[in-house]
């Protein structure tokens, strides 16, 4: 459900880029997805197949997903650590004063088209 809404927004954006650039056919859309974006890649590609088929510009196009690692910075000791393995508590100094540097992205990187 969540993924479908995101797919609709991607399609809107790609159609606009298509008009601006006079594209005839989009063959692929490359998406950068953060590890802790909360978006499930499999659901996203399922929704994509269904929704892209309704757009003449994007019918049959591929959604390529590149995963970006999640990195958290610790305010206690200043070090960075991988978020997925350790969550919100710093593995170096056990501080809870931490914030996400990268990993929540849902970005359209580029469009491959004719």
């Amino acid at each position: 459900m969540h993924e479908l809404g995101i797919v609709f927004h991607i399609i809107d954006r790609v159609e606009r880029v298509g008009r601006e650039n006079g594209l005839e056919k989009v063959s692929a859309v490359v998406l950068e997805l953060g590890e802790v974006s909360g978006v499930v890649p499999g659901y996203l590609t399922d929704c994509w197949r269904w929704a892209a088929a309704k757009s003449p510009l994007m019918e049959g196009s591929e959604l390529k997903i590149e995963t970006l690692p999640a990195i958290t910075r610790c305010g206690g000791c200043g070090r960075d650590y991988p978020t997925v393995a350790h969550g919100r508590t710093c593995p170096h100094c056990r501080s809870g004063d931490t914030w996400l540097l990268t990993g929540s992205e849902v970005d359209i990187k580029e469009i491959e088209a004719y």
């Binding site: 809107d12 849902v106 970005d107 990187k109 469009i111 491959e112 004719y114």
Partner: peptide, 14 residues
Amino acid sequence: RVRIIEVKQSVFAD
């Protein structure tokens, strides 16, 4: 030829 158009923008930006 395949063209690559850079977008580099969040899906939520619009």
